[in-house]
Design a protein around this nucleic acid. Structure first.
Length: 111
DNA sequence: GCATTGACCCGTC
DNA sequence: TGACGGGCCAATG
């Protein structure tokens, strides 16, 4: 686990930076976050970093490309769905969010 | 520096 | 329409 975290200069640092910019009531996909970090195919890395920690970051806003919640979230999808609901994000009966509306985009973020 | 792993994504059967 | 496998990139041992 990177001790530098947001202070680092690597891929992980960018992931933390982007996650820190995600506003409440919005969700982001692993692939998108990875893409903003410079590697559209590194979605797995984003998940791996998420598992590491950085409790200050809203990992519960991380969802799959299809809108379904993550698989290894602490407490299960139910816990994640609960946190999202607390922010105003409504999940489907199948633990799926409406990415068409809730998907956040880092418009101001550099490529 | 090589091999293994992972909260994923896409193509195919 | 649903299930299975391979591939991708970065971090760790």
């Amino acid at each position: 686990m990177p001790s530098d975290m947001t202070r680092g200069d690597g891929f992980a640092a960018r992931v933390y930076a982007v996650m820190a910019e995600v506003p409440a009531g919005r969700v982001v996909t692993y692939g998108d976050v990875a893409a903003w970090c410079g590697s559209p195919r590194a979605a797995r890395i984003v998940g791996g970093l998420a598992h590491f920690g950085a409790p200050d970051l809203p990992w519960h806003r991380l969802v799959r490309q299809n809108g379904t919640l993550a698989a290894g979230f602490p407490g299960g999808r139910i816990e994640q769905a609960r946190r999202l609901a607390d922010e105003g994000v409504i999940t489907d009966d199948n633990f799926k969010v409406d990415i068409s509306t809730l998907l956040w985009d880092p418009q101001h973020y550099p490529g």
